[in-house]
Design a protein around this nucleic acid. Structure first.
Lengths: 230, 230
DNA sequence: ACCTGAACACCGTTCAAGT
DNA sequence: ACCTGAACACCGTTCAAGT
């Protein structure tokens, strides 16, 4: 993610798709979705806005490539564990993604926005192949894989949104949760008994542990249906 | 959703928050996220852009209110069935939301973007109270409720993103799925065996049935853990 | 082949001025 | 109290012109 130094060797292009993507990731990490603009990017790279369009098609392409760089790296690390049991491997993939989105919250939003593209395919492949190794086939395999995928993407998007909201309103996690908890406590007691009841748990909960528990719930459901089919 | 007729009674404000929200929903339904602008909205309402700011705080407020109008109506309909078994009620809520997002795809994106706000609280309350009725308490209740919530929001966001992508590229569902399937079929056979294998199923699958199967998977997982706890 | 940078057609939001 | 509409500070994207 080092700053691109222009035309380091004579005749070589001063800009490359990779350096543009790396700079984009830096901007997104620093300022969230609104931190990446072609103006900020061209200033950082020391070029004009038009030059960037020679290497990327448009902003969607750029966001997709930035997201894919993070996801590809994350999946490569999580997949290194070939000797793991399938259930363990699925948890490892989930946690790897969780931590990656914790470090790069904009990735969660991008995964929710760009469906069926490479980043999602990488996750699908990682999850799906492990579900297949569990012994599922045909429709059960499809359903198990897509349930896990959608759950993971759902948590990713919500985490990203929570982070973005807190950042926009200049709140740290603690204060953000306290504010939401306070709001929920003031909901109408007849209409929102459940939400009022859990408002207190909001402050103490551990996103990462809860995320893992959700994966286990789905894995248990898969095992139960598998046992029922015999 | 009828066009606001200005100053129908003398002295009455010609604009109202409700009429602004209704017009916003129309624009979002017709043109997706990019269909809602203050310029399009003010033209449709026959006012200036500044007038709208007297009734809504900003665009986020407007999007949130539009989303909440749809979700509130959906939850009110799904909650009408008080005699249902809890598991049935959870499925009914899920399907109600699925169909609402099918009719208003932008709602899925908005749910992913605005965390812990009223639309999400309504869903949380509907789901959580039914999970509580299943007999869960304490941490198990929290985990079960949030797993179902995240799964539902994850599917909602992905469906919305798929629809938005297809609309932007002027594709009908069939052609969109065919295009994605074709892309997946051309992935490297060694790196993406799973994804290549399910590319064919992509065209035949039923989003709605798959969504329901995912809910059942989580409900089965909850039941299995409940049985284990005795 | 690659880059420049001004220009275009948009945005959300503000605000003095009106009624 | 409510509305007008021009103005402001941005966007992403294009494109003639340069090297």
């Amino acid at each position: 993610m080092t700053k691109n130094t222009r035309r380091t060797q004579r005749g070589e292009p001063s800009l490359s798709r990779d350096s543009i993507i790396a700079a984009s990731i830096d901007l997104l990490d620093a300022g969230g979705d609104s931190g990446l603009t072609f103006r900020a990017l061209s200033e950082r790279l020391g070029t004009g806005a038009g030059a960037i369009y020679w290497h990327v098609a448009n902003k969607d392409d750029l966001l997709d490539a930035a997201c894919d760089a993070i996801v590809a790296q994350t999946m490569a690390m999580a997949a290194g564990s070939a000797t793991m049991a399938s259930q363990e491997a699925i948890r490892a993939i989930g946690l790897g993604l969780f931590d990656a989105i914790d470090a790069h919250p904009w990735v969660g939003g991008q995964l929710a926005r760009a469906p069926a593209r490479m980043p999602m395919v990488r996750i699908l492949e990682g999850i799906g192949s492990r579900v297949a190794a569990l012994g599922l086939q045909g429709n059960a395999l499809w359903l198990g894989g897509s349930a896990l995928l959608h759950y993971i993407l759902g948590v990713a998007a919500q985490n990203a949104a929570n982070r973005a909201y807190a950042q926009t309103h200049a709140l740290v996690r603690e204060d953000y949760l306290a504010a939401v908890g306070a709001e929920w406590s003031q909901l109408d007691a007849d209409a929102y008994p459940f939400t009022r009841g859990i408002a207190a748990q909001l402050r103490e909960h551990d996103d990462r542990a809860d995320f893992l528990a959700g994966i286990d719930l789905i894995l248990d459901g898969i095992a139960a249906q598998q046992a029922r089919r015999g």
